[in-house]
Design a protein around this nucleic acid. Structure first.
Length: 475
RNA sequence: GGCGACUUAGCCAAGUGGUAAGGCAGCGGUCUGCAAAACCGCGAUCCCGGGUUCGAUUCCCGGAGUCGCCUCCA
């Protein structure tokens, strides 16, 4: 079985074969730090995390780069409104971003280059494009000449002639007066010495255009040609199209082999976006008592990454229940592995079911990261495992094998072990109440026992009586 | 105006040319002092109309609805 991934460039599911044997260079478009990330942004980073984890699970050595865009028009506008410097303004958002990644158990990239740290290489790239005639200067700015790059539009399969200029309502019209044609995009924006964000360059004072940074940083870190470039669907055009144009025009080589574009998160039927004011942040959800791991689980398994996902808070509650079931099965298997004997005669049925589930799980992920499909096999194993354990038909080997399958799945899911490992400790008052209840049950004083159970539930402790004694967990 | 995606049980959502995974919710049951947890059982002919086919939810055409992109939004 090989790993196949949908590639935007070819428009088809393709076998992923590394340019360099055993290694993958992966560039992921990161945040523009003018505000906190919302969970729609985070969905993209989660899909990329899943992709990287799966590549690694298949034995590939991945180098992941994620940029931090710490200079752009919005940042400049907001920083100057706040009367602060660029770095001073962006620092808290950068911090918040990394905090979100950690809470969602997203593996950190190997390097997070910042736009402001790459002005030199960006200027060099602009110079190369000027020298080769792919760019021109006008009114102190430098623009990319799209007519010099015939392949323009290949990624999005757009016939640029048919585009309705300004249909998105996002064009700042006076920005276009200095261009040869409206399609051309800016590489270097004219500015003045002393501006909040301005650097000296051979083309005068100014600042880099947005598309430029990704090309410069990606090529610096991963080479002029690399395997994978990732970003939300809305970056396909124009951002990634422009990146291809400026990179390939400068180097004459293929910029990126495969393009990966996770779909949007919708809320109340529309795209979640800061400009719409309909966004939800991770910290807001946590303040309302949601577990960030439930957010991870929902955003990864709630729908295939290439499909839009409708966000509702009730789905988060469902996800939390799923997580609870998975974690308690994990703990049950760990316990059973320690306690149970080997099942006599023949193979352990749970071991057989576990091996099969692992196989199906990998097949589904190999098929364009179909985690929503893959998770189904895990729940089937969970049901079968509980059934066999309930009936005493599974033994040590089966439990161990189920745990192995869960562990293996969790290298991609990234939620079960973390959830299961949440150390649940009782306060002395809670412990005392539990103890009293145990005694009441031994005395068969069920009225007292039930009263104590209600009391414990009231303070968030769910009590369960089993054959092997009383268990509890927080709700 | 151009391009594209989607429409599957109350909700979320996989999937296949031969009558449809999984999760949540609901109902009934086993277990339990009672609960909880766990397990067992119960639910959809896949937006509508036409076509291709022995047979379509799955392919083609048309329609309806929803959503996305169309120059600095993940």
């Amino acid at each position: 079985m090989t790993f196949r991934l949908f590639d935007t460039l070819s428009g088809a599911v393709e076998v992923v074969e590394p340019l360099n044997p055993g290694r993958i260079g992966m560039y992921t478009c990161g945040p523009t730090v003018h505000d906190q990330a919302h969970i729609g942004n985070l969905r993209t980073y989660l899909a990329e995390d899943l992709l990287r984890r799966h590549l690694e699970a298949r034995g590939l050595q991945v180098t992941q780069i994620m940029n931090i865009t710490d200079v752009d028009d919005k940042i400049i506008a907001k920083a100057s409104a706040a009367g602060s410097g660029l770095a001073e303004f962006t620092a808290p958002f950068v911090e918040a971003f990394f905090r979100d990644l950690e809470r969602l158990n997203i593996q950190p990239a190997h390097f997070y280059p910042r736009a402001t740290g790459y002005i030199g290489p960006m200027i060099e790239l602009v110079q190369r494009l000027l020298d080769s005639g792919h760019a021109y200067q006008s009114d102190g700015s430098v623009y990319f000449r799209i007519s010099s790059f015939p392949d323009y539009g290949r990624l999005t399969h757009l016939d640029t002639a048919g585009l309705k200029t300004g249909a998105s309502g996002r064009i700042d019209s006076d920005e276009y007066e200095a261009k040869e044609t409206v399609r051309d995009f800016v590489l270097w924006k004219a500015g003045r010495r002393g501006d909040l964000a301005a650097w000296d360059s051979p083309f005068g004072w100014g600042r880099p255009g947005w598309h430029l940074e990704c090309s410069a940083m990606a090529m610096d870190q991963l080479g002029e040609s690399f395997d994978l470039h990732c970003g939300g669907v809305d970056n396909k055009f124009p951002h990634h199209e422009n990146e291809i144009a400026q990179s390939e025009a400068a180097t004459g080589r293929t910029f990126v082999k495969h393009w990966f574009h996770p779909e949007h998160l919708l809320i109340a039927g529309g795209k979640m976006a800061k400009s719409q004011g309909n966004f939800v942040t991770l910290s807001a959800l946590m303040e309302r008592g949601h577990d960030p791991l439930a957010v991870r689980f929902l955003l990864l398994t709630g729908a295939h990454y290439r499909h839009k996902l409708q966000f509702k808070e009730s789905l988060l509650e469902e996800a939390a229940k799923d997580l609870e079931r998975l974690a308690s099965f994990w703990k049950r298997c760990a316990q059973a592995e320690a306690d149970l004997p080997t099942v006599p005669g023949g193979p352990d049925p749970l071991a057989v079911a576990s091996a099969r589930a692992a196989e199906l799980f990998e097949e589904a992920l190999d098929d364009d990261l179909n985690l929503p499909d893959a998770i189904g096999t895990i729940f089937e194993l969970l049901r079968e495992g509980n059934r066999l354990l309930d009936k005493g038909l599974a033994g040590r080997e089966g439990a161990a094998s189920a745990l192995t399958t869960l562990r293996q799945a969790d290298t991609r899911l990234g939620v079960i072990e973390r959830r299961a490992a949440v150390e649940e400790v009782l306060t002395s008052i809670e412990a005392a109440l539990l103890k009293q209840r145990e005694q009441a049950r031994r005395d068969r004083d069920y009225a007292a026992s039930d009263r104590l159970r209600d009391e414990l539930l009231g303070i968030g402790i769910q009590v369960e009586d089993t054959k092997d004694g009383t268990r509890w967990h927080r709700v």
